[in-house]
Design a protein around this nucleic acid. Sequence first.
DNA 1: GATCGCGGAGAACGCTCGTTCTCCGGTGCG
DNA 2: CGCACCGGAGAACGAGCGTTCTCCGCGATC
Lengths: 190, 190
Amino acid sequence: MVLDTATAQQQVLDAADALFYERGVQSVGMDAIRAASGVSLKRLYQLFPSKDALIEAYLDRRDALWQSMLAEHVEAQTDPRERILAVFDFLYAWSSQRDYRGCAFINAFGELGAVSPQVAEMASRHKEGFRQALTQLAREAGADDADRLADHLILLSEGAITRAAISGSADPALRAREAATMILDASAKR
Amino acid sequence: MVLDTATAQQQVLDAADALFYERGVQSVGMDAIRAASGVSLKRLYQLFPSKDALIEAYLDRRDALWQSMLAEHVEAQTDPRERILAVFDFLYAWSSQRDYRGCAFINAFGELGAVSPQVAEMASRHKEGFRQALTQLAREAGADDADRLADHLILLSEGAITRAAISGSADPALRAREAATMILDASAKR
DNA sequence: GATCGCGGAGAACGCTCGTTCTCCGGTGCG
DNA sequence: CGCACCGGAGAACGAGCGTTCTCCGCGATC
Protein backbone atom coordinates (compact mmCIF):
# COMPACT_ATOMS: atom_id res chain seq x y z
CA MET A 1 0.00 0.00 0.00
CA VAL A 2 1.51 3.28 -1.07
CA LEU A 3 0.62 6.48 0.72
CA ASP A 4 1.50 10.06 0.04
CA THR A 5 3.40 11.87 2.74
CA ALA A 6 0.48 13.80 4.14
CA THR A 7 -1.80 10.85 4.77
CA ALA A 8 1.06 8.70 6.04
CA GLN A 9 1.89 11.42 8.55
CA GLN A 10 -1.76 11.70 9.49
CA GLN A 11 -2.08 7.97 10.10
CA VAL A 12 1.09 7.87 12.19
CA LEU A 13 -0.09 10.77 14.31
CA ASP A 14 -3.52 9.21 14.72
CA ALA A 15 -2.00 5.95 15.86
CA ALA A 16 0.54 7.63 18.12
CA ASP A 17 -2.14 9.77 19.69
CA ALA A 18 -4.41 6.86 20.43
CA LEU A 19 -1.67 4.60 21.79
CA PHE A 20 0.39 7.15 23.69
CA TYR A 21 -2.70 8.61 25.32
CA GLU A 22 -4.19 5.28 26.19
CA ARG A 23 -1.15 3.43 27.50
CA GLY A 24 1.37 6.11 28.27
CA VAL A 25 4.35 7.12 26.22
CA GLN A 26 6.93 4.68 27.50
CA SER A 27 4.71 1.63 27.32
CA VAL A 28 4.19 2.01 23.58
CA GLY A 29 6.90 0.81 21.24
CA MET A 30 7.56 2.14 17.78
CA ASP A 31 6.52 -1.23 16.42
CA ALA A 32 3.06 -0.87 17.93
CA ILE A 33 2.72 2.47 16.17
CA ARG A 34 3.88 0.93 12.92
CA ALA A 35 1.28 -1.83 13.27
CA ALA A 36 -1.54 0.55 14.20
CA SER A 37 -0.76 3.09 11.51
CA GLY A 38 -0.03 0.67 8.67
CA VAL A 39 3.05 2.70 7.83
CA SER A 40 6.35 0.86 7.47
CA LEU A 41 9.08 1.46 10.03
CA LYS A 42 11.30 2.94 7.37
CA ARG A 43 8.74 5.51 6.39
CA LEU A 44 7.90 6.18 9.98
CA TYR A 45 11.50 7.13 10.66
CA GLN A 46 11.58 9.30 7.55
CA LEU A 47 8.61 11.24 8.85
CA PHE A 48 9.79 11.38 12.48
CA PRO A 49 13.50 10.83 12.97
CA SER A 50 13.15 9.49 16.51
CA LYS A 51 10.60 8.50 19.08
CA ASP A 52 11.25 11.76 20.89
CA ALA A 53 10.32 13.69 17.77
CA LEU A 54 7.11 11.70 17.51
CA ILE A 55 6.29 12.37 21.15
CA GLU A 56 6.80 16.05 20.53
CA ALA A 57 4.51 15.97 17.52
CA TYR A 58 1.94 14.04 19.55
CA LEU A 59 1.94 16.66 22.30
CA ASP A 60 1.87 19.50 19.81
CA ARG A 61 -1.21 18.09 18.17
CA ARG A 62 -2.90 17.42 21.51
CA ASP A 63 -2.27 21.00 22.51
CA ALA A 64 -3.77 22.39 19.34
CA LEU A 65 -6.75 20.05 19.45
CA TRP A 66 -7.41 20.74 23.10
CA GLN A 67 -7.28 24.49 22.63
CA SER A 68 -9.65 24.36 19.70
CA MET A 69 -12.14 22.14 21.55
CA LEU A 70 -12.05 24.52 24.47
CA ALA A 71 -12.50 27.53 22.22
CA GLU A 72 -15.44 25.86 20.54
CA HIS A 73 -17.28 25.51 23.84
CA VAL A 74 -16.42 28.99 25.02
CA GLU A 75 -17.36 30.71 21.79
CA ALA A 76 -20.81 29.17 21.83
CA GLN A 77 -21.55 31.51 24.73
CA THR A 78 -21.78 35.28 24.66
CA ASP A 79 -22.38 36.23 28.28
CA PRO A 80 -18.95 36.65 29.94
CA ARG A 81 -19.93 34.62 32.96
CA GLU A 82 -21.37 31.87 30.81
CA ARG A 83 -18.18 31.82 28.79
CA ILE A 84 -16.24 31.05 31.94
CA LEU A 85 -18.62 28.32 32.97
CA ALA A 86 -18.41 26.88 29.47
CA VAL A 87 -14.86 25.86 30.36
CA PHE A 88 -16.30 23.43 32.88
CA ASP A 89 -18.93 22.23 30.46
CA PHE A 90 -16.09 21.43 28.11
CA LEU A 91 -14.27 19.56 30.86
CA TYR A 92 -17.43 17.60 31.56
CA ALA A 93 -17.87 16.64 27.92
CA TRP A 94 -14.20 15.75 27.59
CA SER A 95 -13.99 13.65 30.73
CA SER A 96 -17.18 11.84 29.74
CA GLN A 97 -15.48 10.29 26.73
CA ARG A 98 -15.05 6.57 27.04
CA ASP A 99 -11.31 6.63 26.37
CA TYR A 100 -10.68 9.55 28.70
CA ARG A 101 -7.40 9.19 30.54
CA GLY A 102 -6.78 12.68 31.92
CA CYS A 103 -4.48 15.34 30.60
CA ALA A 104 -1.85 14.03 28.21
CA PHE A 105 0.57 16.66 29.43
CA ILE A 106 0.17 15.83 33.09
CA ASN A 107 0.62 12.16 32.26
CA ALA A 108 3.66 12.76 30.10
CA PHE A 109 5.10 15.04 32.74
CA GLY A 110 4.69 12.39 35.41
CA GLU A 111 6.39 9.87 33.19
CA LEU A 112 9.19 11.91 31.71
CA GLY A 113 9.19 15.37 33.25
CA ALA A 114 12.27 14.72 35.35
CA VAL A 115 14.08 12.94 32.57
CA SER A 116 13.18 14.95 29.49
CA PRO A 117 13.42 18.76 29.68
CA GLN A 118 11.65 18.76 26.33
CA VAL A 119 8.51 17.21 27.80
CA ALA A 120 8.65 19.31 30.95
CA GLU A 121 8.84 22.43 28.82
CA MET A 122 5.90 21.41 26.64
CA ALA A 123 3.75 20.64 29.67
CA SER A 124 4.61 23.97 31.17
CA ARG A 125 3.76 25.79 27.95
CA HIS A 126 0.47 23.94 27.55
CA LYS A 127 -0.64 24.87 31.04
CA GLU A 128 0.52 28.43 30.56
CA GLY A 129 -1.63 28.66 27.46
CA PHE A 130 -4.64 27.47 29.41
CA ARG A 131 -3.87 29.99 32.12
CA GLN A 132 -3.79 32.81 29.64
CA ALA A 133 -7.06 31.74 28.08
CA LEU A 134 -8.69 31.78 31.51
CA THR A 135 -7.15 35.13 32.34
CA GLN A 136 -8.60 36.54 29.15
CA LEU A 137 -12.06 35.21 30.04
CA ALA A 138 -11.73 36.63 33.54
CA ARG A 139 -10.83 40.02 32.09
CA GLU A 140 -13.81 39.94 29.75
CA ALA A 141 -15.98 39.23 32.78
CA GLY A 142 -14.71 42.41 34.38
CA ALA A 143 -12.91 40.78 37.31
CA ASP A 144 -10.95 43.30 39.29
CA ASP A 145 -8.11 40.82 39.63
CA ALA A 146 -8.32 38.69 36.53
CA ASP A 147 -5.04 36.90 37.19
CA ARG A 148 -6.14 35.79 40.60
CA LEU A 149 -9.56 34.67 39.41
CA ALA A 150 -7.91 32.73 36.60
CA ASP A 151 -5.61 31.06 39.11
CA HIS A 152 -8.57 29.96 41.17
CA LEU A 153 -10.44 28.67 38.15
CA ILE A 154 -7.45 26.79 36.83
CA LEU A 155 -7.06 24.96 40.12
CA LEU A 156 -10.62 23.74 39.89
CA SER A 157 -10.06 22.73 36.28
CA GLU A 158 -6.87 20.78 36.88
CA GLY A 159 -8.44 19.14 39.87
CA ALA A 160 -11.41 18.07 37.81
CA ILE A 161 -9.17 16.77 35.03
CA THR A 162 -7.07 14.53 37.27
CA ARG A 163 -9.84 13.41 39.57
CA ALA A 164 -11.98 12.42 36.65
CA ALA A 165 -9.12 10.33 35.28
CA ILE A 166 -8.45 8.47 38.50
CA SER A 167 -12.04 8.00 39.57
CA GLY A 168 -13.25 7.15 36.08
CA SER A 169 -16.22 9.44 36.43
CA ALA A 170 -17.09 12.81 34.92
CA ASP A 171 -18.66 14.06 38.13
CA PRO A 172 -15.64 16.09 39.18
CA ALA A 173 -16.30 18.47 36.29
CA LEU A 174 -19.80 19.08 37.62
CA ARG A 175 -18.46 19.74 41.11
CA ALA A 176 -15.84 22.06 39.63
CA ARG A 177 -18.53 24.00 37.85
CA GLU A 178 -20.45 24.45 41.09
CA ALA A 179 -17.34 25.62 42.89
CA ALA A 180 -16.59 27.99 40.03
CA THR A 181 -19.97 29.64 40.36
CA MET A 182 -19.31 30.15 44.06
CA ILE A 183 -15.94 31.71 43.33
CA LEU A 184 -17.45 33.91 40.65
CA ASP A 185 -20.19 35.08 42.99
CA ALA A 186 -17.71 35.79 45.75
CA SER A 187 -15.43 37.68 43.38
CA ALA A 188 -18.29 39.77 42.01
CA LYS A 189 -19.50 40.73 45.45
CA ARG A 190 -16.23 42.34 46.42
CA MET B 1 28.47 -5.32 54.75
CA VAL B 2 25.90 -7.40 56.55
CA LEU B 3 22.51 -5.96 57.41
CA ASP B 4 19.63 -7.35 59.34
CA THR B 5 16.37 -7.67 57.48
CA ALA B 6 14.71 -4.60 58.95
CA THR B 7 17.41 -2.10 58.05
CA ALA B 8 17.97 -3.67 54.63
CA GLN B 9 14.27 -3.27 53.92
CA GLN B 10 14.39 0.27 55.19
CA GLN B 11 17.31 1.17 52.95
CA VAL B 12 15.69 -0.39 49.92
CA LEU B 13 12.47 1.48 50.53
CA ASP B 14 14.34 4.73 51.09
CA ALA B 15 16.22 4.31 47.83
CA ALA B 16 13.14 3.21 45.91
CA ASP B 17 11.15 6.14 47.24
CA ALA B 18 13.77 8.68 46.28
CA LEU B 19 14.40 7.26 42.82
CA PHE B 20 10.85 6.31 41.84
CA TYR B 21 9.52 9.65 42.98
CA GLU B 22 12.24 11.66 41.33
CA ARG B 23 12.50 9.93 37.95
CA GLY B 24 9.29 7.98 37.60
CA VAL B 25 8.77 4.30 38.13
CA GLN B 26 9.65 2.99 34.70
CA SER B 27 12.81 5.02 34.29
CA VAL B 28 14.42 3.46 37.35
CA GLY B 29 15.98 0.03 37.03
CA MET B 30 16.39 -2.47 39.82
CA ASP B 31 20.12 -2.03 39.52
CA ALA B 32 19.86 1.66 40.33
CA ILE B 33 17.95 0.76 43.49
CA ARG B 34 20.57 -1.79 44.39
CA ALA B 35 23.32 0.80 43.94
CA ALA B 36 21.49 3.49 45.92
CA SER B 37 20.46 1.20 48.74
CA GLY B 38 23.73 -0.72 49.09
CA VAL B 39 21.73 -3.94 49.27
CA SER B 40 22.72 -6.76 46.97
CA LEU B 41 20.39 -7.78 44.17
CA LYS B 42 19.93 -11.18 45.73
CA ARG B 43 18.81 -9.74 49.01
CA LEU B 44 16.67 -7.18 47.26
CA TYR B 45 14.76 -9.96 45.53
CA GLN B 46 14.41 -11.82 48.80
CA LEU B 47 12.79 -8.77 50.36
CA PHE B 48 10.65 -7.88 47.34
CA PRO B 49 10.06 -10.73 44.91
CA SER B 50 9.55 -8.46 41.91
CA LYS B 51 9.70 -4.86 40.83
CA ASP B 52 5.92 -4.73 40.95
CA ALA B 53 6.01 -5.73 44.60
CA LEU B 54 8.53 -3.00 45.29
CA ILE B 55 6.38 -0.44 43.50
CA GLU B 56 3.45 -1.51 45.61
CA ALA B 57 5.50 -1.14 48.80
CA TYR B 58 6.70 2.26 47.61
CA LEU B 59 3.16 3.50 47.07
CA ASP B 60 1.98 2.02 50.34
CA ARG B 61 4.65 3.87 52.24
CA ARG B 62 3.98 7.10 50.38
CA ASP B 63 0.33 6.83 51.26
CA ALA B 64 1.04 6.31 54.96
CA LEU B 65 3.62 9.07 55.07
CA TRP B 66 1.41 11.50 53.22
CA GLN B 67 -1.55 10.84 55.47
CA SER B 68 0.53 11.30 58.59
CA MET B 69 2.05 14.57 57.34
CA LEU B 70 -1.40 15.82 56.52
CA ALA B 71 -2.74 14.78 59.91
CA GLU B 72 0.14 16.52 61.63
CA HIS B 73 -0.74 19.83 60.04
CA VAL B 74 -4.45 19.45 60.64
CA GLU B 75 -4.13 18.41 64.24
CA ALA B 76 -2.07 21.47 65.07
CA GLN B 77 -5.30 23.44 64.67
CA THR B 78 -8.38 23.29 66.81
CA ASP B 79 -10.82 25.62 65.10
CA PRO B 80 -12.74 23.58 62.50
CA ARG B 81 -12.29 26.17 59.81
CA GLU B 82 -8.59 26.46 60.53
CA ARG B 83 -8.28 22.71 60.38
CA ILE B 84 -9.61 22.79 56.84
CA LEU B 85 -7.27 25.57 55.84
CA ALA B 86 -4.39 23.66 57.39
CA VAL B 87 -4.77 21.22 54.51
CA PHE B 88 -3.61 23.96 52.19
CA ASP B 89 -0.82 25.00 54.50
CA PHE B 90 0.34 21.41 54.33
CA LEU B 91 0.19 21.49 50.54
CA TYR B 92 2.20 24.67 50.56
CA ALA B 93 4.89 23.20 52.79
CA TRP B 94 4.97 20.02 50.76
CA SER B 95 5.18 21.66 47.36
CA SER B 96 7.91 23.96 48.65
CA GLN B 97 10.29 21.07 49.10
CA ARG B 98 13.21 21.18 46.71
CA ASP B 99 12.62 17.67 45.37
CA TYR B 100 8.87 18.12 45.00
CA ARG B 101 7.54 16.35 41.93
CA GLY B 102 3.79 16.28 42.50
CA CYS B 103 1.68 13.42 43.73
CA ALA B 104 3.35 10.04 43.41
CA PHE B 105 -0.01 8.43 42.77
CA ILE B 106 -0.99 10.77 39.98
CA ASN B 107 2.41 10.25 38.40
CA ALA B 108 2.27 6.49 38.74
CA PHE B 109 -1.27 6.49 37.42
CA GLY B 110 -0.23 8.47 34.36
CA GLU B 111 2.61 6.05 33.75
CA LEU B 112 0.97 2.73 34.48
CA GLY B 113 -2.69 3.28 35.26
CA ALA B 114 -3.86 1.85 31.96
CA VAL B 115 -1.41 -1.02 32.05
CA SER B 116 -1.42 -2.05 35.70
CA PRO B 117 -4.77 -2.45 37.48
CA GLN B 118 -2.74 -2.75 40.67
CA VAL B 119 -1.45 0.81 40.34
CA ALA B 120 -4.78 2.18 39.20
CA GLU B 121 -6.42 0.65 42.23
CA MET B 122 -3.85 2.07 44.63
CA ALA B 123 -4.18 5.55 43.17
CA SER B 124 -7.93 5.35 43.47
CA ARG B 125 -7.70 4.23 47.08
CA HIS B 126 -5.22 6.94 47.98
CA LYS B 127 -7.44 9.64 46.59
CA GLU B 128 -10.48 8.12 48.24
CA GLY B 129 -8.68 8.29 51.57
CA PHE B 130 -7.96 11.94 51.04
CA ARG B 131 -11.57 12.53 50.12
CA GLN B 132 -12.76 10.92 53.31
CA ALA B 133 -10.37 12.95 55.41
CA LEU B 134 -11.70 16.13 53.86
CA THR B 135 -15.28 15.00 54.31
CA GLN B 136 -14.59 14.43 57.97
CA LEU B 137 -13.12 17.92 58.32
CA ALA B 138 -16.09 19.38 56.50
CA ARG B 139 -18.45 17.59 58.84
CA GLU B 140 -16.60 18.88 61.88
CA ALA B 141 -16.97 22.37 60.46
CA GLY B 142 -20.71 21.88 60.40
CA ALA B 143 -21.17 22.06 56.65
CA ASP B 144 -24.73 21.22 55.67
CA ASP B 145 -23.41 19.22 52.72
CA ALA B 146 -20.07 17.92 53.84
CA ASP B 147 -19.61 15.65 50.84
CA ARG B 148 -20.09 18.47 48.42
CA LEU B 149 -17.80 20.81 50.32
CA ALA B 150 -15.17 18.10 50.44
CA ASP B 151 -15.50 17.61 46.70
CA HIS B 152 -14.90 21.30 46.11
CA LEU B 153 -11.92 21.38 48.44
CA ILE B 154 -10.37 18.31 46.90
CA LEU B 155 -10.52 19.87 43.46
CA LEU B 156 -8.57 22.85 44.71
CA SER B 157 -6.08 20.54 46.40
CA GLU B 158 -5.45 18.32 43.40
CA GLY B 159 -5.16 21.37 41.21
CA ALA B 160 -2.58 22.88 43.54
CA ILE B 161 -0.64 19.62 43.68
CA THR B 162 -0.32 19.21 39.93
CA ARG B 163 0.14 22.86 39.07
CA ALA B 164 2.88 23.19 41.62
CA ALA B 165 4.66 20.23 40.07
CA ILE B 166 4.51 21.53 36.52
CA SER B 167 5.20 25.17 37.27
CA GLY B 168 7.90 24.39 39.82
CA SER B 169 6.45 26.91 42.26
CA ALA B 170 4.54 26.56 45.50
CA ASP B 171 2.28 29.50 44.71
CA PRO B 172 -0.64 27.34 43.58
CA ALA B 173 -1.08 26.17 47.17
CA LEU B 174 -1.46 29.78 48.28
CA ARG B 175 -4.02 30.44 45.56
CA ALA B 176 -5.84 27.27 46.53
CA ARG B 177 -5.99 28.43 50.13
CA GLU B 178 -7.54 31.74 49.03
CA ALA B 179 -10.09 29.97 46.88
CA ALA B 180 -10.86 27.63 49.76
CA THR B 181 -11.67 30.53 52.06
CA MET B 182 -14.04 31.88 49.43
CA ILE B 183 -15.76 28.52 49.13
CA LEU B 184 -15.98 28.20 52.89
CA ASP B 185 -17.49 31.66 53.23
CA ALA B 186 -19.98 30.97 50.47
CA SER B 187 -20.94 27.63 52.02
CA ALA B 188 -21.40 29.16 55.47
CA LYS B 189 -23.62 31.93 54.16
CA ARG B 190 -26.17 29.57 52.77
C1' DG C 1 39.67 -27.56 62.49
C1' DA C 2 36.40 -29.21 58.91
C1' DT C 3 31.92 -28.40 57.02
C1' DC C 4 27.69 -26.19 55.99
C1' DG C 5 25.02 -22.45 54.59
C1' DC C 6 24.02 -17.67 54.10
C1' DG C 7 25.07 -13.44 51.87
C1' DG C 8 27.71 -10.36 48.61
C1' DA C 9 29.40 -9.19 43.97
C1' DG C 10 28.42 -9.31 39.65
C1' DA C 11 28.10 -12.21 35.38
C1' DA C 12 24.58 -14.31 32.64
C1' DC C 13 20.09 -14.92 30.41
C1' DG C 14 16.15 -13.79 27.93
C1' DC C 15 13.31 -10.32 26.48
C1' DT C 16 11.95 -5.77 24.80
C1' DC C 17 12.78 -1.84 22.27
C1' DG C 18 14.77 2.05 19.47
C1' DT C 19 17.02 2.27 15.35
C1' DT C 20 19.25 0.64 11.11
C1' DC C 21 20.08 -2.53 7.37
C1' DT C 22 19.02 -5.97 3.79
C1' DC C 23 16.44 -7.79 0.37
C1' DC C 24 13.07 -7.40 -3.06
C1' DG C 25 9.20 -6.13 -5.94
C1' DG C 26 7.14 -2.55 -8.45
C1' DT C 27 7.04 1.83 -10.90
C1' DG C 28 8.47 5.69 -13.73
C1' DC C 29 11.70 7.37 -17.03
C1' DG C 30 14.97 7.21 -21.04
C1' DC D 1 12.69 -2.85 -22.85
C1' DG D 2 16.14 -1.89 -19.29
C1' DC D 3 17.45 0.48 -15.36
C1' DA D 4 17.54 3.24 -11.38
C1' DC D 5 15.05 4.30 -7.41
C1' DC D 6 11.58 4.28 -3.84
C1' DG D 7 9.06 2.06 -0.50
C1' DG D 8 7.51 -2.21 2.07
C1' DA D 9 8.43 -6.20 5.08
C1' DG D 10 10.91 -7.66 8.42
C1' DA D 11 15.51 -9.29 10.02
C1' DA D 12 19.36 -7.55 12.55
C1' DC D 13 21.86 -4.97 15.96
C1' DG D 14 22.97 -3.00 20.25
C1' DA D 15 21.52 -1.35 24.53
C1' DG D 16 18.84 -1.65 28.76
C1' DC D 17 16.43 -4.17 32.07
C1' DG D 18 14.08 -7.69 35.17
C1' DT D 19 15.40 -11.76 37.02
C1' DT D 20 18.36 -15.72 38.03
C1' DC D 21 22.67 -18.09 38.58
C1' DT D 22 27.56 -18.82 39.76
C1' DC D 23 31.33 -18.29 42.47
C1' DC D 24 33.47 -17.22 46.60
C1' DG D 25 34.40 -15.79 51.38
C1' DC D 26 33.02 -15.75 56.01
C1' DG D 27 30.93 -17.01 60.31
C1' DA D 28 28.67 -20.62 62.94
C1' DT D 29 28.31 -25.43 64.46
C1' DC D 30 30.00 -30.09 66.01
